[in-house]
């Protein structure tokens, strides 16, 4: 964090002022979604990008958080906002159990195991009708008609998540996480308890994902298993958000989240109704092409390879004295 802090100040100020300047609920809604994805993408990044455990199952934690909030309202008869308190810890707890099962596997096998666990959770939520309501889902009424409370709450969660990850990565844990990512055996031979630190990484990661899920329940007010436990729309999207922005960088997933949400919405709505109708059919395709392009030419994502992009962009290659390295 040697780079000037004024960037962060500008971002925070802009983010705080945004809904007051742009008074359209629609754009505020898009920003809330993007902030939600900032949290999911950043949490995924902590486990995958920093600790090297590529999870294909982050929908589990998102879903657990969302259902915790939803069930607070439907089963316990208390406000779904309690889910904001409970969702994170419960997701972490489930994360510990899943980690206990899956962390004995490495690399691609870990990834496969998380896919399987994710699917099991989804199917269980579909079948266990008496608890979850099955595919009829849970519908609540939003507490606020204005978007502002949701926006600032999402903003707080997003900055909280980014800050927490920043702190974690600057602590002793962070060094162990990266050591495990680079070479688990070497890390273990140095006395790092890989299992423990992978679990810690997962606990933090699942906590924030669960919190995001609980927020989703409160904000979107409707969930069903296909929405919150979706492999394609949550787990894989979380990965792509991280990949596009840059894995193992603090600001990569947030950037990826904004790109993903706005790219998809721009195309889905045919450039906000200005373009021809058929453009809307391209909304996933364009995103897929971007993913391929990024992986092929910017293996570390837009933020991770920013210096490379800048060097290509400007002719003054000499200036690229690589001020900020990886994992800033």
């Amino acid at each position: 964090m040697k780079a000037p802090r004024w960037h962060i100040v500008v971002i925070v100020a802009a983010a705080l002022a945004f809904p007051l300047i742009v008074r359209s609920d629609y754009y505020v809604h898009m920003f809330i979604l993007a902030l939600l994805w900032v949290v999911i993408g950043s949490s995924w990044n902590l486990l995958a990008g920093y600790t090297g455990q590529v999870s294909f199952g982050h929908a589990i934690f998102f879903g657990i958080g969302a259902y915790t909030a939803g069930l607070c309202a439907t089963k316990l008869g208390i406000s779904a906002w309690w889910g904001m308190l409970l969702g994170g810890p419960i997701a972490s707890l489930i994360g510990l159990v899943i980690g206990w099962i899956c962390f004995r596997l490495r690399g691609p096998y870990f990834a496969l195991a998380t896919i399987a666990v994710g699917e099991i959770f989804r199917l269980a939520a579909v079948v266990w009708r008496s608890l979850t309501g099955g595919m009829q889902g849970i519908l609540l009424m939003q507490s606020f008609r204005s978007k502002l409370p949701y926006y600032y709450l999402a903003l707080a969660i997003a900055f909280g998540c980014i800050y927490a990850i920043h702190r974690v990565m600057r602590s002793k844990w962070g060094y162990y996480f990266i050591a495990i990512r680079e070479d688990q055996d070497a890390a273990e031979s140095m006395g790092v308890n890989a299992f423990r630190y992978k679990s810690l990484s997962l606990v933090v990661s699942s906590f924030f994902t669960g919190l995001a899920g609980a927020f989703y329940m409160n904000y979107m007010a409707f969930i069903d298993p296909e929405v919150v436990f979706s492999l394609h729309h949550i787990s894989i999207m979380a990965i792509l958000v991280g990949i596009i922005g840059g894995v193992g960088t603090l600001w990569g997933p947030p950037l990826g989240a904004f790109i993903m949400v706005f790219l998809q919405e721009t195309f889905r709505s045919s450039f906000f109704g200005l373009g021809p109708r058929w453009v809307s059919e391209l909304h996933v395709l364009v995103f897929g092409l971007l993913v391929i392009f990024v992986i092929l030419y910017m293996a570390n994502g837009i933020v991770g390879d920013w210096d490379k992009i800048r060097r290509l962009g400007s002719s003054k290659a000499g200036a690229a004295s690589a001020s900020a390295g990886k994992g800033s």
Binding site: H7, I11, A14, T249, W251, I259, I309
Partner: peptide
């Protein structure tokens, strides 16, 4: 890279 973010 934060500039990139801001620009975007």
């Amino acid at each position: 890279m934060r500039r990139a973010l801001a620009a975007l």
